[in-house]
Nucleic acid binder design. Sequence first.
DNA 1: GGACTTAATTTGAGTCGCGATTTAACCTGG
DNA 2: CCAGGTTAAATCGCGACTCAAATTAAGTCC
Lengths: 402, 402
Amino acid sequence: MIDRRRRTVRDLRRGNRSVLLWQLYLRGTLTRNDLARATGLSAATVSNVVSQLIRDGVVVEDGSVESDGGRPHVLLRVNAGHGHLVGVDVGETRVRVELFDLSMATKAKADYGLDSGGRDVEALVGLIHAGLRAVLDNSGVPAERVLGVGVGVPGVVEHTPEAVVHGQTVGWDAVPLERLLREDTTLPLFIENGAKSMGQAEMWFGAGRGASSAVIALIGSGVGASVVANGATYRGASSSAGEWGHTTIQIDGRACRCGARGCLEAYVGAEAVLDRYREHTGTAPTAADGGEEAAVAALLDTADAGPVLDRTAVYLGAGIADLINLFNPQRIILGGWAGMLLGPRLLPGVRASAARHALRHPFGQTSIELCQLGPEAVALGAATLPMERFLSQGGTAVPAAP
Amino acid sequence: MIDRRRRTVRDLRRGNRSVLLWQLYLRGTLTRNDLARATGLSAATVSNVVSQLIRDGVVVEDGSVESDGGRPHVLLRVNAGHGHLVGVDVGETRVRVELFDLSMATKAKADYGLDSGGRDVEALVGLIHAGLRAVLDNSGVPAERVLGVGVGVPGVVEHTPEAVVHGQTVGWDAVPLERLLREDTTLPLFIENGAKSMGQAEMWFGAGRGASSAVIALIGSGVGASVVANGATYRGASSSAGEWGHTTIQIDGRACRCGARGCLEAYVGAEAVLDRYREHTGTAPTAADGGEEAAVAALLDTADAGPVLDRTAVYLGAGIADLINLFNPQRIILGGWAGMLLGPRLLPGVRASAARHALRHPFGQTSIELCQLGPEAVALGAATLPMERFLSQGGTAVPAAP
DNA sequence: GGACTTAATTTGAGTCGCGATTTAACCTGG
DNA sequence: CCAGGTTAAATCGCGACTCAAATTAAGTCC
């Protein structure tokens, strides 16, 4: 039912500022003429809008290129120093706070352990605030120049309209995280599921670049997915879309920690793979005391793990085939820490299994690849949220001018 | 990445015409003041735009309502006679052509059998043209006043940019249907998968009214789905999204006609249910010679069909749970001819099974209901495609004025 | 019949994007 | 060194747009 918003004459200018900014941001440096050609706007309007953007400090001229006989082109780019962004990665064991400039270069970091396993929300909120202060102090960036703070959290984020987080794995039930954070900061907050923000990082800077639709399949201890459709993260009615781990792959199959049976997560998550190896061989995998990650790494070198891993590829391929059939994406991107560890070993088997289980036509339109960014991209992805807003608003919501 | 289109000053007026038209179309009759409140536009602008719409014949005044002491409100509505729409339903056995006015009231119908099972594309194209001529002649509507022709077809429709149809069930491999139809008509064509156009009919006029996201699950001989997200049909990268029937519900399970094993369609489509009944009892269901539809109807009255039907509800519920987990829709709507036949019997079991297999949170946000329109809604849904375009363009693309 | 209410239109001002024109900044060739 | 050529960018005038305020229209009520 398309766009239901009214248009005022101001929206015109804001929209065109946004169109030009997105172009400059995604394609690097361009001339005014390039912008006119790329957007379809007249050269007059581009010139006019760009001069306004330069006056606002959002865009800067960046050298020139001589042409063959005429006035040289002036190159334009987004002013990386015009503002800053904060990305926060709330994990189950750590909180990471990272400060970026507009080119997404890291300017400062702070990193804290969480001993309560993330259950203690007040302590977590305190650490986020401490991290915020730390990155601002260390970099000397004044708070007024921060365009926003993106926070990636484990769990479903509902916007009602304030962000409320439901996180089973950390025992959160409707934690009003936005309100809690708001008590100690006035910066714009963007709270989002960590898997979705990682997916966005992968789309902007990783294996998803250039695609407008993709599904990022994340395999860690459990299994999740981030769906990108028409260039934007797909959230569904209450932001819990993409719960791929609990789709049924085997009716009445293995018990899953969600209480149901036969979930994909009960077969292909790190925990499930280790369990299945134990059942298969009767022994625990080596290095099991080094944690799940070490155990999975050890599994790859274990001689008798072959059948378990091959079978995992079959399950995973079937799960991916479901994604292909239902979402018809341009790409499937395999990520998550276990996905990165197991990926190279499993990928051929996964591709074969997906080809068997998916319909020919959508399978032919997609490719199955490994991710390019690691799990530490959550903070980066979280920082893209205020950036997305900034660009879409045409670089208004500008912090206090210098 | 949001809207990448430039804005010109003309888009403003067209956009606001569109906003007002959508309001009038969806909510029936409104006054100018209602429109101003609903859209946020100023009363001045609404008055201005509406007078233009009235001058163009798109909108008409429709009586007035006295207010308590002031000037009476004038009611406005879309002029149902301003133009007409054609919906074509291409099935495997029939072609139906239907003419509607803008209020979607049927003005004429034509209906032809297809003996080739739809394989003979040239014959089909001839019948569509014959139907077009017939409905126009019978109703006396001149072709210039038809805003467009929507065609719902069995198979995947790829827009490259001309619509090309891939239909396994009718043996079509890349049939350039748009080009073929274009040879004999200049009317705007909108070719779409029949399941998706039925889904759109259900969203506009059936069980989906008022929802902005839903999945319409269609059970016929096979199984399919139409996904609606953010108020628009979700198509994916190459328009084949929503192939729910071939998601895997049981690894290495029953063989499916697609060649894979364990597809949902191998358990819950009409064909599969009848097969499973035969295997269960060793006998064919009564009235099997009356076709699948009669056989399914007979099955419902058969004493020993209980276990097969109960088990079907379990499978169907698990498949629906996958949709809930992945798409997080506001509603699940159960349709298709077999879905309508079996629905009342299966629904309690389906709901219970979906509750067991879906995550608590997204399951709590959705409801599972029966559809309100029958399979004959394909033509209606196809006719909504030109209507959607007409409204989104603000009632421009107007046929020659009377 | 005059005061009051509410709906709708008109008016005047401020913005916007575009096409045409002008200015700016460079090259080349004699 | 300088006229002529070439391309990029800025400027100008025009038509179109929305909005707030003022005005007109069409009723009710005492």
